[in-house]
């Protein structure tokens, strides 16, 4: 039961990651790329939670916490650059 559940989650998350990645590669402007980077970051946070579940170590969730807290900073810096303040 757990295997099927994980497989469904993996396929859904992989599809979302692939779509964000395609948008990242063929984007027209840099703002598009920044939004696609944010989406890919969110989906990879979910992917890392799933990996910690598959490996069976709750200790690895610290990494995901750091990533979710700090990945916001890159997009914020890009926004600050686009408004001319860096």
């Amino acid at each position: 039961m757990s295997n099927t559940f994980s497989l469904i989650l993996l396929v859904l998350l992989g599809a979302g990651f692939a779509m964000a990645f395609i948008r990242l590669v063929i984007a027209r402007t840099a703002g598009d790329r920044a939004v696609a980077l944010d989406g890919a970051t969110l989906i990879s946070v979910d992917l890392m939670v799933l990996m910690a579940f598959l490996m069976g170590r709750s200790m690895l969730l610290d990494v995901v916490l750091v990533y979710a807290l700090l990945s916001f900073l890159g997009v914020l810096a890009i926004a600050r650059y686009l408004e001319g303040g860096l």
Binding site: D62, V66, L69, L76, E83, G85
Partner: peptide
């Protein structure tokens, strides 16, 4: 730069450094 930050950056700068600092101390 002499550019004023927009309100989103200003609010984030006031709210978020505390939790990040706390989490860094935890790590």
């Amino acid at each position: 730069p002499a550019n004023k930050p927009s309100s989103i950056v200003l609010l984030t700068m006031k709210v978020l450094p505390g939790p990040i600092l706390l989490f860094g101390g935890y790590i």
